[in-house]
């Protein structure tokens, strides 16, 4: 591939008179992790939802691998996103089927993609459980019996099993205990490196951003106020708002 895998141009999302996203452009290249940081209300989650096709943008374009998602028919967009783009929800309950076994959760999208061999599906599911450090003996358990951290790891296995080229993550470690967060971050970083994934990760947690992201966008009031390499943005912020964000973290 010669160009960015994701190109967002002049994206806007208006709710009445309010502009939740007020004209954002960004590129994500294959193998690159882009972090989007900002406080709640900055528009970062709306931006991610628009990229994921979950909310319709008011203006602008979202081009994935050369195809403008905003121009596609609903059914084609849904299929393309389902096949190629993974989405990790903050709350694993939004991304899992709690009344279906862990193995079934991982196998579902493989079956959607046409896999029809039970033995192979089960082996693939078990291998993914290995990779997210869930014991194979849990493959037939329902995720409702899992801890929050295990549920999040299962969600990640479910998303990655179909080998998406782009993964969108919304506060992937939010809602977890600090010790569990650290372990999950390590796991995520390892998987992203190993699989060479392109990732857009939205977080209010600059620690998460520093650990995962190669580049950062800082959002405020629906706009990008600063962007650059992660270390550069966090260690030497140029914009007054970023300086405030960074210093407030340091005070914690």
């Amino acid at each position: 591939m010669s160009g960015p895998i994701l190109e967002v141009r002049d994206l806007e999302k208006r709710y009445g008179a309010r502009r939740a996203v007020a004209g954002v452009s960004l590129d994500v290249w294959p193998g690159e992790v882009l972090g989007i940081v900002g406080e709640s209300g900055s528009g970062k989650t709306t931006l991610l939802s628009a990229i994921a096709g979950r909310v319709a943008p008011s203006a602008g374009s979202v081009t994935y691998d050369g195809r403008d998602l905003t121009e596609l028919a609903d059914v084609d967009r849904s299929r393309l996103i389902g096949d190629k783009i993974g989405f990790v929800h903050q709350n694993p309950r939004d991304g899992l089927r709690l009344n279906v076994s862990a193995g079934g959760n991982v196998a579902e999208k493989l079956m959607a993609a046409g896999a029809r061999n039970y033995g192979a599906l089960r082996e693939t599911a078990c291998r993914w459980l290995d990779r997210v450090e869930i014991g194979r003996d849990r493959v037939d358990d329902h995720p409702s019996k899992f801890s929050g951290g295990m549920q999040q790891r299962l969600q990640i296995a479910r998303v990655l099993a179909t080998q998406p080229q782009l993964v969108l993550m919304d506060e992937p470690t939010g809602g977890l205990d600090v010790s569990v967060q650290a372990k999950l971050l390590d796991l995520l970083r390892g998987l992203v490196d190993e699989l060479g994934l392109a990732v857009v990760v939205v977080t209010h947690d600059l620690g998460v951003a520093r650990l995962l992201a190669h580049r950062l966008l800082v959002m405020k009031d629906g706009l990008v106020v600063e962007h650059g390499l992660t270390d550069q943005v966090l260690d030497d912020p140029a914009h007054a708002y970023t300086q405030l964000l960074v210093s407030s973290v340091l005070q914690v």
Partner: peptide, 16 residues
Amino acid sequence: FADYGAMHLKLYEDVA
């Protein structure tokens, strides 16, 4: 959308 990824799931759960 013929979004039938779930359609084999019941059979998968049976065999599991």
